[in-house]
Nucleic acid binder design. Sequence first.
DNA 1: AGTAAAAAATGACAATCGTCATAGAAAACG
DNA 2: CGTTTTCTATGACGATTGTCATTTTTTACT
Lengths: 229, 229
Amino acid sequence: MLEKDFRQVSCSTCHQRKENLLGGLGCDEISHIEDHKSCNYYKKNQSLFIEGSYPRGVFCINEGRIKIYKRGNEGKEQIIQIAKGGDLVGFRAMFSEDVYKVSAETLEECNICFISREDFLSLMDSNPTLRKGIIKELSTELADRANFITNMAQKSVRERLAFSLLLLMDIYVGEPINLSREDMANFVGTATETLIRLLKDFKEEAYIETHARKITVLDRNKLMSIAGI
Amino acid sequence: MLEKDFRQVSCSTCHQRKENLLGGLGCDEISHIEDHKSCNYYKKNQSLFIEGSYPRGVFCINEGRIKIYKRGNEGKEQIIQIAKGGDLVGFRAMFSEDVYKVSAETLEECNICFISREDFLSLMDSNPTLRKGIIKELSTELADRANFITNMAQKSVRERLAFSLLLLMDIYVGEPINLSREDMANFVGTATETLIRLLKDFKEEAYIETHARKITVLDRNKLMSIAGI
DNA sequence: AGTAAAAAATGACAATCGTCATAGAAAACG
DNA sequence: CGTTTTCTATGACGATTGTCATTTTTTACT
């Protein structure tokens, strides 16, 4: 449970910022953001933005996890990415000068700051380090997605589930993976029933254990060999 | 068939350049590239770069088409993108300061210019228009790939084939689509045999016609409704 | 042009996976 | 604390799709 006074976060002391794309900012730049940003508390399952709307700025996650997803034709979500504390979200659409092509929604309680489009773009104009960081981030994500596409096309659901569990371990560091079965299925790219059946297999083979919806990985190496990495 | 004298292309008169990311360059910048770039003729099925190697610059396609692909664990290719005349290729890995995560190979005879990493990066430092163009391009491609992932996860092979044929129409403008069945299958993300069977269905339903390996779309609207767009 | 090699096409078959229906467990809520 | 609702789990079944084997067509090469 998040503290109430957590809701107003200071950029200058934010430990998340020091590790992320905004880590290289100067004091004056930070205080400028500090004065202009807004900081909000979000409940679980709240929407940050939806496909088709115009971006007005970027979201900087201080605490909590969110899903970035796209809806297919029948309305089914495909989760493209799960972002966590420290991640910047929603800047891609801003650069493409177009509407959002994906939606974002909190998976749990979150504290999230918001920096306006104008502030962020002017920061990028004046700060080459930030600029390079952003370009590098975009490029790295493109490579990740090429990999995601290849996995989708060539791996079985079982292999993709093993792969996804390993990815989720890096998102839920030190804690059990805590996603609804439907969200997990939409991340792996399968039907909820199929996902549940395969989780059961993994449980019986003792690669994972579950407590209610929470999943703990017991045999990381085995999952890696199933995932083919 | 490409003319021999096509092989040395001048940037200042290049009609491709005027339409692409390098369209906003100044005269001095162009002449600098002109002096430093190299220009090469490639045969069909020649490699531009492969996964795992370090990028030394960017490729600017003057004429011809190339495939960008990633190999899955069993060695099967997944085609991520097909680039054509005017496209810049291979700059993502350069920005991520890492090895290529994909490979590139010509699909036909090509004329391709090469600009070194140093030249290109310094051009980006000095030219804000180019920089913005690159960032926009990266962002747009990220959105495209989110869509690609969703299609892979949620559409049937038949739907993906219809979708792919529509994409290929934009790559083979005014000419029939000319890809090997294996490459098409690796683009759609299916087995070659399955692809051939579905092409046969489309042929029998008169949505396409084929002459040898070449495919002409007859009923664009029908394909759109199958693809779900 | 003629032959060799590669690519495309077809057939048969099995398995993965999605869908629908329903039961059971957990969570939410007054 | 019990009731409602949501989520998870399981069963049955069929369709889509991948694999292997083989034939036919096209392309490449001398």
